[in-house]
């Protein structure tokens, strides 16, 4: 089993993507998709990526929901900021945030979440000291941001990946 399907989830995702792209469930599409999924899994096995396991699928779903809500909220906030008249005092800036998480997959997920949410962009990570540099569009209180990142995302991601 391990030989044929080294990465079952990746292969399943590839098959699903192929079926969506072709837009049919016919035998031809299924056959080609299955071949693609198999070969894709083997190619990935050759690359030998570090294996990460999702420990808590439920926690991951909850995190996805939190991120979705946050995307809606910050879209609204950033749109207001952009359209607001310039007279309002607003400051953007960099914040350094110390992280306790060391798992590469968790850090990558955190980086993607923060960057995809309007209003925050992950700029840099110092792996020796575990400090991340974040650019925030509407920076009011640095300590507040450190708390938000740690409570809202880091705790959940550590639960999932570590």
């Amino acid at each position: 089993m391990r030989r044929v399907l080294p990465f079952p989830w990746v292969s399943a995702a590839l098959l699903l993507l192929w079926l969506l792209l072709v837009g049919s469930m016919g035998p031809g599409a299924l056959l080609l998709g299955a071949a693609l999924a198999l070969v894709g899994g083997w190619l990935l096995a050759v690359l030998d990526p570090p294996r990460t396991r999702l420990r808590r699928p439920l926690a991951a779903l909850r995190l996805a929901w939190v991120v979705l809500v946050e995307v809606f909220r910050s879209n609204n906030a950033v749109a207001r900021l952009i359209l607001a008249p310039r007279t309002r005092g607003r400051s953007s800036g960099f914040v350094r945030i110390p992280l306790d998480m060391r798992s590469p997959a968790g850090l990558a997920a955190l980086a993607c979440i923060l960057t995809a949410t309007p209003g925050t962009v992950w700029a840099e990570y110092d792996s020796a000291r575990g400090i991340m540099l974040l650019h925030v569009l509407d920076l009011i209180d640095e300590a507040e941001w450190v708390r938000i990142i740690k409570d809202r995302y880091e705790a959940r991601l550590m639960e999932i990946f570590e």
Binding site: N75, V78, T115, A116, T117, P118, G119, V121, H135
Partner: peptide, 8 residues
């Protein structure tokens, strides 16, 4: 930060 509105 601006283009993330369109891309999300």
């Amino acid at each position: 930060h601006a283009p993330t509105l369109g891309t999300t």
